[in-house]
Write a protein that binds this DNA or RNA. Structure first.
Lengths: 253, 253
DNA sequence: TCGATTAGGCTGGCATGCTAGTTCGCCTAG
DNA sequence: CTAGGCGAACTAGCATGCCAGCCTAATCGA
């Protein structure tokens, strides 16, 4: 598909660099396959994925020396990566005590969704006014894929397409800074969602809402677009709150 | 306010090998238990203040070894602090080339303001519905101070009260995560504002807008509150765009 | 004299060693 | 048997040293 799935990662400063993979370093040269990423970026990404994917649940301790051995790097790289995650509130590091995956605060989830709703509502209104036809065409393609995913019941694929749909709106308007904030927010929201949501029955409803949003954009109706997005995200928030009520043990506050 | 770091300007003659500037003998002795600020936090804060305050203008190179000598710490602390700033897009670090204060992209300013408008509009609507009376009283006090500042022409004091006014809305609703994002945004916006805005004539207009916002909150009128905040920030955005036209050399794009 | 090549001096990235503080368990004394 | 204290082993923070890329300039060859 032409809609990129793994495009913008929030906040990571990119560096245009080739890495010759350090042929002669002392210490155990880990011939980890050729990645052009910096070492801290690698660890940062891996940890983030593990946390968001639920592999590292809240309260899970983060053993830095173990990670050093696992990735074949020094403590500094691991520490830097963990500090970055702490900056994003995904982990908590207590000096001289240890680091662990942060718990999820109910108030935080509500705020993330509020932020998402406010920003995406604004964005979709702008989209309905100024989004280029080529981008609308891409949205159309994405909708087709979504329909296919729903038909075949591909839950994970639909989730990816869901993300891509929302990302297209941002990218199409060139709002990269807004996109960074939303990526960060989505990270947190996804963490709670992955933890608690295996509900396939929601797919058709979500598809319908996406289609409504798409239609208002294609029709160039900003206020309707904002309304549709608002309703869409309100529904997601309601979903999350229902889950929070059913699984109170995962949350704080 | 007068947080001079020292003669921090571009192109300082450097003295490479002068590391042990620790006045307290051996070991990283903590000064006293009162200030539990980490060294990287100190440097991070000082640099951030210098950048936002305009002391370090865009494109100004960041000499790490010079900062090491100036603060009497090692390169690692400085590097960590600079990396944190790079994460916030306040500085750009090019590997093997150098680090410098980031330039200001026009598109970024527009996006920051768009984010601020979207979030604060949402927040002020919630305030009009649920803000506690004690917080409204605090807002009232703040407004009184604002009037005093305008009367006496205290531009800098008014700016601080302006910030405090907006912060009160966030704190009063307990929206700490929203507040963090807005703080980050405000950092960027303030940087351009401090760089270019010495306009005292705007104070009375801003005061009027703040008073309008306060009134709608006290009157418990959410839609009017949102409208007032929207207009207020739209005006600020227009101001910033006017400045950008007058000083195009400070911007990119 | 002019151009191309190389060496040195800048930069940041990474590894390692050391210090300090907290916690927990074991050992001893009551 | 219990309670208190002391030490070992964990943690993070910080300094330093070394390595590798880039840019510049000086030098050597045509």
């Amino acid at each position: 598909m032409s809609t990129r799935i793994g495009g913008m990662t929030a906040g990571t400063p990119k560096r245009p660099r080739k890495s010759p993979a350090n042929p002669l370093g002392k210490g155990p040269g880990r011939p980890h396959a050729g990645t052009s990423e910096s070492k801290v970026d690698q660890i940062y990404g891996a940890l983030k994925l593990a946390i968001v994917g639920g592999e590292l649940p809240p309260e899970a301790p983060i053993d830095k020396v173990d990670l050093c051995a696992r990735f074949g790097v020094s403590r500094l790289s691991v520490t830097t990566a963990v500090n970055r995650l702490a900056f994003e509130r995904l982990v908590v590091v207590e000096p001289q005590r240890g680091s662990y995956v942060s718990r999820i605060r109910i108030s935080d989830v509500r705020q993330w969704m509020m932020i998402r709703r406010a920003l995406e509502t604004e964005v979709v209104g702008a989209c309905a006014q100024h989004l280029g036809d080529d981008w609308i065409e891409q949205l159309d393609r994405n909708m087709a894929y979504q329909r296919t995913a729903v038909k075949s019941g591909d839950l994970d694929g639909f989730h990816q397409l869901d993300i891509a749909f929302h990302r297209l709106l941002i990218e199409g308007m060139g709002l990269d800074r807004v996109g960074e904030i939303l990526e960060s927010v989505r990270t947190h929201v996804d963490r709670t969602r992955r933890l608690l949501l295996p509900e396939p029955g929601r797919m058709p409803a979500t598809l319908k809402e996406h289609q409504a949003i798409y239609r208002t954009i294609a029709d160039r109706n900003p206020s309707a677009a904002a309304r549709a997005m608002h309703e869409h995200l309100d529904r997601v928030l309601g979903e999350l709150e229902a889950f929070q009520e059913r699984h109170p043990n995962f949350f704080t506050d």
